[in-house]
Design a binder for these strands. Structure first.
Lengths: 112, 112
DNA sequence: CTGAATCCACGTCGATACTG
DNA sequence: CAGTATCGACGTGGATTCAG
């Protein structure tokens, strides 16, 4: 978590944005929900347009917010596994609704 | 719309992000869903931490994407009204799920 | 393989002032 | 009232390199 967007008028949306805003977080969560457990390199493959650096940063933030779990195997070479945490699963309806909308209106923005 | 996030692996989330990403868009939509029609100054009051400049920009983008409608009354002084468009209402489930989550986990990020 | 660290270009955003 | 224009500070993100 980096900052708190204040919004005195009472805006629950802000809370949600705190967790899933960030350029790629919701996409990462989408894939983790879909596949359960993914390694770093597997996530990279699924997000070809995200740099390693950015992916690492977004994952770190998600982990910091306890949305995902990270398991590191001290093998050589190292191997890591990411999965949605118990807390993170509460976000499933949000991601799901985004998926549904994005699927239904898939054609809206395919052409520039 | 500013750019297309490419994601060959088939990611409907990206489509949704195209429309509701942007720092304050989902919050704006949340308020518009809630109140139906809002003037510029009313939106400003509901988003005290957003500058006029940013609010105007986000509204312009939402309008450009046909998510909201803008009605200008050529009175003196000028008066504008914003409301969710017919297309924009399809986003209601997404915003709603964000609202539900943010309400349920309201306490998660109230303390730094 | 999975990152973290450094450097730097670029865009974003806030503050301020201005217009119709 | 509802914006737009300009400027400057700041953060973000990409490329590259290094490390465990």
């Amino acid at each position: 978590m980096k900052e708190i967007y204040n919004c005195d008028v009472g805006c629950p949306i802000q809370n949600t944005l705190q967790v899933i805003s960030g350029k790629w977080k919701s996409v990462i969560l989408y894939h983790l929900f879909k596949f359960g457990v993914l390694r770093f390199s597997e996530l990279q493959a699924k997000l070809p347009y995200v740099t390693k650096r950015m992916l690492a940063r977004q994952l770190a933030e998600l982990e910091e917010d306890n949305v995902i779990d990270k398991k590191v195997y001290a093998t050589i070479p190292v191997k890591t596994e990411y999965s949605v945490s118990e807390f993170g699963t509460t976000l499933q309806p949000v991601i799901k609704s985004m998926e549904i909308w994005g699927t239904a209106y898939n054609d809206v923005y395919t052409v520039k």
